[in-house]
Amino acid sequence: MSIITRRIFGGVAIAIAIAAQPFAALAEVANAAAGSGAARADAKAPVVVFAAASLKNALDAIAKDWTRESGVEVKASYAASSALAKQIEQAAPADLFISADVPWMDYVAQKDLIVPATRVDLLGNRLVLVASKDWSKGDVELKSGVDLAALLGDGRFAMGEVSSVPAGKYGKAALEKLGIWPSVSGKVAGAENVRAALALVARGEAPLGIVYKTDAAADKGVKVVGTFPADSHPPIIYPMAKLKSATSSNADAFLNRLSSAGAKKTFEEAGFTVIAPPSGS
Rank of each mutant, 00 (worst) to 15 (best):
L84H: 02
G11N: 10
K264I: 07
K213I: 00
I180Y: 06
P207V: 10
W104L: 12
A76R: 06
A131P: 06
S99N: 03
L198T: 02
S144C: 00
A174Q: 01
V222G: 06
A30I: 04
Q21Y: 12
S99T: 05
A39R: 13
V211R: 02
I3W: 11
T5H: 09
A100R: 00
P229S: 06
P22I: 05
I4Y: 07
L96Y: 08
A261H: 00
E161G: 11
A30C: 05
D101S: 12
P166C: 11
A91E: 13
A217H: 03
S279E: 08
L152R: 06
V108S: 07
G10S: 14
L129K: 10
A15S: 15
I180A: 01
L142D: 02
E89T: 04
D121R: 09
T273P: 01
L122E: 04
A53F: 08
S54I: 08
E269F: 00
A158L: 02
G204K: 05
L152W: 08
P277Y: 09
S163K: 13
Y78T: 05
F97K: 04
A251R: 05
G168N: 04
A206Y: 04
A17V: 11
A41D: 14
N250S: 13
V225R: 05
A263K: 03
K86T: 15
P229K: 03
A191M: 14
L255Y: 02
I98E: 02
F97Q: 06
P278N: 13
R68K: 15
A94Y: 09
V194Q: 09
A92Y: 10
S81D: 04
V140D: 02
L175G: 05
L151S: 06
S279H: 05
S81T: 14
A32C: 01
F272E: 03
S185H: 03
P277I: 11
A217M: 13
Y107K: 12
A27S: 12
L96W: 01
V224A: 09
V222C: 08
L151E: 07
K56C: 00
A41T: 01
N193F: 09
D252Q: 13
F272G: 07
L152N: 02
P166M: 04
G262W: 07
A13H: 10
L123H: 01
D134A: 13
V108E: 01
A253N: 11
E73S: 14
G209A: 08
S248F: 12
R126T: 10
A63Y: 04
E268G: 03
L198A: 07
V184D: 07
A158G: 01
D139S: 15
A83Q: 12
W104F: 12
L258T: 14
L123C: 04
Y238P: 01
A80I: 12
K137V: 07
A91P: 00
F50H: 05
A20P: 01
M240R: 08
P116Y: 08
V194I: 13
K143Q: 11
A63L: 01
G145K: 04
Y212L: 15
I210E: 10
T266N: 02
